[in-house]
Amino acid sequence: MKVTVDQDKCVGSGQCVLTSEAVFDQRDEDGIVVLLDPTPPEELAEDVRQAAAICPAAAITVEE
């Protein structure tokens, strides 16, 4: 699994962080997504998929 984020699309809702805090974080100054792990382990895969699915800005891409 490979994860990418588009910081230009991100609206700072934080749903990704709530879903998978081991993979996503937010910048303190504006809440924009920060990718902590672009190749997360398999045990986090479902959480990452859910984060991508619920992102209101569709700023997260997951490649299997």
Rank of each mutant, 00 (worst) to 15 (best):
M1N: 01
M1T: 03
T4P: 01
T4F: 07
V5T: 11
V5N: 05
V5K: 04
V5Q: 03
D6K: 02
D6H: 01
D6E: 09
D6S: 07
Q7H: 06
Q7R: 10
Q7W: 00
D8M: 10
D8Y: 01
K9Q: 07
K9D: 06
C10V: 02
C10L: 07
C10W: 03
V11H: 00
V11Y: 00
V11S: 02
G12F: 05
S13R: 05
S13T: 06
G14D: 07
G14W: 05
Q15T: 06
Q15C: 11
C16L: 04
C16D: 05
C16H: 03
V17Q: 00
V17P: 02
L18S: 12
T19A: 13
S20R: 00
S20A: 15
E21I: 00
E21F: 08
A22N: 12
F24A: 06
F24Q: 04
D25R: 01
D25Q: 04
R27F: 05
R27E: 14
D28W: 03
D28K: 15
E29D: 15
E29W: 15
D30G: 11
G31A: 14
I32G: 10
V33A: 15
V34I: 15
L35S: 11
L35C: 12
L35A: 10
L36N: 09
L36V: 15
D37P: 09
D37L: 12
D37G: 10
P38T: 04
P38K: 08
P40R: 08
P41K: 11
P41W: 06
E42H: 11
E43H: 14
A45L: 08
E46M: 10
E46Q: 14
V48C: 09
V48M: 07
V48L: 07
R49K: 15
R49G: 03
Q50A: 10
Q50R: 15
A51F: 05
A51N: 06
A52C: 10
A53L: 12
I54N: 02
C55L: 02
C55H: 04
C55Q: 00
A57I: 08
A57K: 05
A58D: 13
A58T: 04
A58L: 06
A58W: 01
A59R: 00
I60H: 02
I60D: 01
T61W: 00
V62E: 04
V62R: 00
E63Y: 01
E64A: 11
